[in-house]
Design a binder for these strands. Structure first.
Lengths: 239, 239
DNA sequence: AGCGCACTCTAACAAATGTTAATGCCCGGT
DNA sequence: ACCGGGCATTAACATTTGTTAGAGTGCGCT
């Protein structure tokens, strides 16, 4: 059941059976969340961290004027709030964008891992570092890329991340986001989001319908996005 | 000499003398960098992490069209590339924005800390988590705040961070960034950056001259920015 | 004192992006 | 089969932001 987590952590470095067992023993109960439900509330102080077994979720903040910004998208195998283990207080919410099947890891058990399993600790730390690397890439995309390039970059990133946890289907993947939600990812208005998707469709590098994205020309898409997967640290090496 | 680091880490949780000594023993040689010099090169694989003792630096990426985006600003007491300890390959560069006095911590020593000093390990991990929290706040600012609010937020953030490491002077602090560099922080053109600074000046919440920012009305500045320092985790509590 | 240079600031215009509103489509509920 | 609601799409127009160009300013250097 924790397969996606093993795939996610295991992409960076070998994960021993003992470490897998240790992770498994940190888990407590499972839960399902419906679309739109908050998995973790902003301002809360969780005592466990949430692992997505299946589904798509997002971190977000809401401003006073009602504007919402997603700060990350989380897929199967992602700890959506591993950072709360040490940050303690959630400064943002996490919402289910598709039906989500999750399992909770107790902070006390994670703490025990940091006391007794240094290598596994480094892998969990690394997981949050990749999170940060993705954030930086998003900042660059928001600040200096054209909107088309930004969207192309997002498609590249999601495809690669989903491939790691075996949630792609050939060159297609399921992306159950409305254009309004996508607009809250890129920081655009809904109308402009629609224009940008149209632009990407028109150049013919992706087809996009029924919440399914199919990459028609990976090479050119990567070019438009200037996508370089280095930041995802997908190289397996000692950590 | 490591005082800024102790202040930085110590703001989140108590730092024992033994831990301070351990940090000190991880350090090797010091170095000075001039304005504009790369402290860490993109694509490199450093074997040490760089701590700023004094100065201002920034992480950045450059796009094919020459556009540059800063993804973070780093002040005294910040490990600018602690993440490279586990990410291994730098996916971005780090440049000195003021003359920088830095000291290097060997990765082998950091690794030893993860093997033998769990609590200190958690504090170092936390340091990178706060990094991530700042990234998220920047994403929100870029996506959903007005440019004036974004700039106000940056001023609030820098003031608070500099205060922790005792680099403020009353309600003023030194910000040696040209408007062109600031534009690369907010993701704007230089001309528009100038407009935005003018706007913030006009409402009278800051004065801004000679690379010195003085906050004239903290309360109103915070209001404009919708600044909530929770994400900086400045509460001292067991981690 | 004069010069050159980097930086700030402004203007005029162009392009990107937001807003409001309307239309059509699909799909689930009755 | 009908209805209603959410979503995608488009149009027209407003606002923000970028581009290009140039003038002003301060400061170090000779």
């Amino acid at each position: 059941m924790l397969e996606p987590l093993y795939l996610n952590l295991g992409q960076h470095d070998a994960l021993s059976d003992a470490e897998k067992a240790l992770l498994a023993s940190a888990m407590t109960f499972e839960r399902h969340f419906a679309i739109g439900q908050d998995i973790v509330a902003s301002g809360s102080r969780p005592t466990y961290s949430t692992l997505i077994l299946d589904g798509l979720a997002a971190r977000y903040k809401v401003l006073e004027n009602g504007g919402r910004q997603f700060t990350s998208l989380q897929v199967s195998g992602d700890f959506v709030d591993l950072h709360a283990f040490l940050l303690k207080t959630m400064d943002h919410g996490i919402v289910a964008l598709s039906p989500c099947h999750v399992i909770f890891a107790e902070h006390s058990k994670l703490r025990a891992i940091t006391e007794e399993a240094p290598h596994l600790t480094r892998l969990l730390w690394l997981d949050t570092l990749v999170d940060g690397a993705i954030h930086r890439e998003w900042i660059v995309a928001m600040g200096r890329r054209s909107k088309t390039s930004h969207l192309a970059h997002l498609v590249c990133e999601l495809f690669v991340r989903l491939q790691v946890v075996e949630r792609t289907n050939g060159m297609s993947f399921h992306l159950p986001l409305s254009q309004a939600e996508l607009a809250d990812v890129l920081g655009l208005s809904v109308v402009h989001m629609n224009r940008v998707i149209g632009a990407l469709r028109k150049v013919g590098v992706v087809s996009w319908a029924n919440h399914t994205v199919t990459i028609l020309d990976w090479h050119r898409l990567q070019e438009i996005a200037e996508f370089d997967p280095t930041y995802l640290s997908m190289m397996r090496e000692p950590r």
